[in-house]
């Protein structure tokens, strides 16, 4: 037994999760024969993943659909049992679902809602208070803080079914944080939301992380989320880690060209691409030859980097 300790964040060692998937060919005959003899195939959703996250860190978890992101989050929150390997969260082993751990984590899934559909969020908050046994005074303080930070106002008094997608996500997040979790697993928290709402939620997560020194693991398809929140990213594909490190160094690794955009005195706009090593030379050349008013140097879009990462995996 390992000793739970307050310092440790998330530790994952050689984690594997294999699902048995029934194999069945199309057609009636095949379906009938599968009634008696069911063939299954092993699919490794998570295939030997190792990483560790310090307490208080915000890590972006990237990968295409079916890469194993959600499976990893489910393993970490105790919903799934690992096929092999180990993981620990705050020093606890999640698979046993110890209450002491569950009281300190939260799982938010952008495409599901856990608040009671027909009830105002306020009532669902009350239910969470009972589940987490939050003392009344703490509960009221935190609830009002969430209402203010997320600008919920009167939304908490309307039945959840009457809220818009974005509003629902905001109350959802508020409800998931009333017990002041130390570790947040956020699975696509901004999916389907408009830009303003995405920003709001992003700011809020950053704020919460600062305020409570909470560890955050975030998956998102929106690179803006990741860029705004996470210094470090873990890229996962086919259940394996392709990259684990600072977002900035991802660009170095693939040495993609940077883009220099210059606005000239006559109003013309010039774009020049240059490799990282030649960026200084290219810039001074441009400044020397043309009458430049304004100049920006941009990293390649993160989407391009990720795409490059995935395609490099396919040709080993």
């Amino acid at each position: 037994m390992q000793q739970p300790s307050a310092e440790s964040g998330v530790v994952v060692e050689d984690l594997c999760k294999t699902f048995k998937v029934p194999v069945r060919e199309a057609g009636l005959k095949a379906s009938l024969s599968s009634l008696f003899h069911r063939e299954t195939r092993d699919v490794a959703a998570v295939d030997g993943v190792s990483f560790s996250i310090q307490a208080g860190e915000v890590v972006g978890f990237l990968g295409p659909n079916g890469a194993g992101k959600t499976t990893t989050l489910k393993l970490l929150s105790g919903l799934l049992h690992p096929t092999s390997g180990r993981c620990s969260v705050l020093g606890f082993e999640p698979r046993a679902r110890p209450a002491a751990l569950l009281r300190q984590i939260t799982l938010v899934m952008g495409n599901r809602n856990q608040l009671q559909w027909d009830l105002p969020a306020m009532d669902s908050f009350e239910l969470n208070r009972a589940i987490y046994r939050i003392p009344r005074a703490d509960f009221v303080r935190l609830r009002d803080e969430m209402i203010e930070l997320l600008d919920l106002g009167d939304l908490v008094n309307k039945p959840v079914r009457n809220l818009s997608l974005g509003e629902r996500m905001k109350v959802e997040i508020a409800g998931s944080l009333l017990h002041q979790p130390k570790v947040l697993f956020l699975d696509e928290p901004t999916i389907g939301l408009d830009i303003t709402m995405q920003k709001r939620i992003r700011t809020f997560v950053a704020d919460y992380n600062q305020r409570y020194e909470a560890t955050v693991m975030l998956t998102s398809h929106y690179m803006a989320d990741v860029q705004a929140l996470c210094k470090r990213v873990i890229v996962i594909h086919h259940g394996r880690i392709l990259f684990d490190g600072e977002l900035a160094s991802l660009a170095d690794r693939f040495s993609l060209d940077k883009t220099i955009t210059a606005r000239l005195a006559d109003g013309e706009e010039v774009k020049v691409s240059a490799a990282r090593s030649e960026i200084a030379a290219a810039t001074s050349k441009l400044l020397g030859e043309r009458d430049v008013v304004d100049l920006t140097i941009e990293d390649p879009p993160i989407e391009d980097l990720i795409e490059r990462l995935f395609s490099s995996e396919q040709r080993p």
Binding site: G78, A99, L107, R112
Partner: peptide, 9 residues
């Protein structure tokens, strides 16, 4: 959706 019931203490 049982996920949410199972992640509660």
């Amino acid at each position: 959706r049982l996920d949410f019931a199972l992640t509660k203490p």
